[in-house]
């Protein structure tokens, strides 16, 4: 579990520091203040495969597409992850992500992404965590980021042997879309987690009795999700945004056991009347499946609904507002009593 977090030189942040985190963490803030960037920072830091994570973040935002000047080198694309879209200077401090460290000896627990000039005078992007570095030539084509890595550029810079990698579950629920729900459903086949998903879906559709992923007709490929409601089989896509959002959120969550779940813009598609129950599911699964959850919102309904569950789980959650003042990011930590004061006096927290 992350008990604190710092992100430096990443996306919108020159630096942002969060001193306290709990099992369930809600982040507020106005538009384009950096809420999504903060989730991306968590994603990048917590992901086991940094190169895959970097590629994923950039591709998701179309930042990998060639620029007007036709350049699509790793350097010209990865720069978007850096503060002000500019790669850090060679050998200077680059992007730093991780828990706030008190002792220098814990420095290797941080994720660092920087540019260096290596002994062959090559310009390199170096990604380091836990004393393992992965290098890529900045001039190479972005598409080769993967291939490049498999050519054995990865090397260890520490003399210590690294511990064998434990696979840590990490799920990122985007503000829209539905992720790879088929794969996530198959992952929990024959476990009681499927029942948990169905239970959550009944928040919106009480008569839903089961889910099935069925092959489509020949015109399209892959399987689609269908629900059984009062004996009728109905495609999920026809059932409205709310139930599809819950399917995406809860499927992601049961796939994140002993790991981490990130949810961007929790409230999307969810009517305020169901948000309280969805929070209840999140608090309960976070506990029973041991998942640390990071969620963003800019909806006051969402904050109110979160508050209703926070009340009985005070130690298990935090709420922060991300602020940007005098060209610096800061966070305002809310305790439950602070949120209570704001709600009872109708004072804006967002």
């Amino acid at each position: 579990m992350c008990n604190s977090f710092v992100a430096k030189n990443f996306r919108a942040f020159e630096e942002i520091k969060i001193e306290k985190l709990a099992k369930v963490n809600l982040f507020l803030g106005r538009n384009s203040i950096g809420k999504t960037a903060l989730l991306e920072a968590f994603y990048l830091h917590l992901h086991q495969d940094k190169i895959e994570a970097i590629e994923g973040l950039l591709v998701k935002k179309d930042e990998h597409l060639s620029h007007e000047d036709g350049s699509s080198s790793i350097g010209s694309i990865v720069r978007h992850l850096f503060h002000n879209h500019q790669l850090s200077n060679f050998n200077n401090e680059g992007i730093i992500l991780g828990e706030i460290i008190k002792q220098e000896k814990n420095k290797d627990k941080l994720t660092e992404i920087k540019t260096i000039i290596d002994k062959n005078d090559d310009e390199i992007l170096r990604v380091t965590k836990n004393s393992i570095s992965e290098d890529a030539l900045l001039r190479n084509d972005f598409d080769e980021l993967y291939r490049h890595r498999h050519y054995g550029m990865r090397h260890r810079i520490s003399r210590h042997k690294s511990k064998p990698r434990k696979n840590i579950n990490l799920q990122f629920v985007r503000s829209s879309g539905s992720g790879d729900i088929v794969k996530m459903w198959d992952n929990i086949d024959l476990t009681d987690k499927q029942a948990k998903v169905i239970e959550a879906l009944r928040i919106i559709e009480p008569s839903l009795s089961g889910i099935k992923f069925v092959e489509q007709d020949r015109r399209s490929r892959g399987r689609i999700a269908k629900a059984s409601i009062d004996g009728e089989i109905v495609p999920f896509k026809s059932m409205g945004d709310g139930i599809n959002r819950i399917l995406y959120i809860v499927l992601s969550m049961v796939n994140a056991q002993d790991g981490y779940l990130l949810i961007d813009e929790f409230e999307n598609g969810l009517h305020y009347s169901v948000q309280e129950q969805v929070w209840k599911v999140i608090f309960s699964l976070a506990e029973s499946l041991n998942i640390q959850v990071f969620i963003t919102t800019h909806s006051s309904d969402c904050i109110k609904a979160f508050g209703s569950q926070w009340e009985s789980n005070e130690e298990k959650a935090t709420m922060h507002r991300i602020d940007y003042k005098d060209k610096r990011h800061s966070v305002m930590l809310y305790d439950f009593s602070d949120l209570n004061d704001a709600l009872s006096t109708n004072t804006e927290v967002r």
């Binding site: 004061d341 704001a342 009872s344 006096t345 004072t347 804006e348």
Partner: peptide, 18 residues
Amino acid sequence: CENDNQVLSQLNALLQGS
């Protein structure tokens, strides 16, 4: 603020608020 407790709540909410 309607009463004394709410004065204190309002004070805190304003200091914390956006």
